[in-house]
Nucleic acid binder design. Structure first.
Lengths: 134, 134
DNA sequence: ATAGACTTTAGAGTTCGCTCGAAGTCAAGG
DNA sequence: CCTTGACTTCGAGCGAACTCTAAAGTCTAT
């Protein structure tokens, strides 16, 4: 609450480096409503991200990596933007995703078993009929 | 092993129904080299898939569902087309995918934990500050 | 004060995996 | 023969999530 002397906060390039995304992606995320609040600007119009933005983006990265579509993240950002009082909606959103994730993990494990079964079959074939045999 | 009297084999529509893909997709897969051999045609040029194609497509479906790109499946089909003797290459391909799959599963499980942590935090907030409080 | 690194915008382009449509051929029932 | 519906090829189109370009403006260091 006063005049901060040092830069305080991240430029878009710094933030990009900090979270491992491109500046393009950060602007595009913003255009898609993926931030829980307005991004402050300097006098000349440059973005100056607050430090906690790093945590927010790390969460988004998790959601993306686990297959949540951008629209889902936008919905979540909207809820957070709405402030306290919609915790149940946030819980519903996240739990739905968690359930989807469980399903996906099960599917993948199943696929892996089929694949490992294939590998085992090929190994058996190799063992029974070593290089060269009618 | 002899002259089969009945139609024997699937039309593209029948196969599509049998494996749950569209006829468009089957033709597209073919154009991408995803079949381990030429698909026989009737006199009039229509595809007549052999019964074992169903199993092949079910395998492809697994590979796709587990994130293998179409190019990877094409490579695998190429190996199978190559006939016996390249089992080690097939094993290498499949094992690489299996490893990728393991990694992906771990990533997803990690993401789910983060998400479940968020849910837990929201629940705590709800419990401590029930509907309506400064 | 000037180079060069960085940022701004709007909008176009890319990749992947299908998905669809057009325009025509063919098979079977009535 | 006529109709209906499945089949043919080919090429365009789509949605998702970036990714890049261009042309301008700004900041920092020397």
């Amino acid at each position: 609450m006063s005049t901060a002397p040092s830069p305080e906060g991240y430029s878009i390039g710094e933030l990009a480096r900090a979270v491992g995304m491109s500046t393009h992606t950060l602007r595009w995320y913003e255009s898609r409503g993926l931030f829980p609040r307005e991004i402050p600007r300097t006098e000349s119009g440059r973005r100056r991200y607050e430090p906690e933005t790093v945590e927010w983006l790390r969460l988004l990265a998790r959601l993306r990596a686990s297959g949540m579509p951008v629209a889902g993240m936008a919905e979540y950002a909207r809820l957070v933007r709405g402030g306290e009082g919609n915790e149940d909606e946030r819980i519903a959103l996240m739990e739905a995703h968690s359930r989807a994730l469980t399903e996906q993990i099960d599917t993948l494990a199943e696929c892996r078993e089929v694949i490992d079964g294939k590998v085992a079959a090929y190994r058996r074939r190799l063992a029974e009929r070593p290089p060269g045999a009618p």
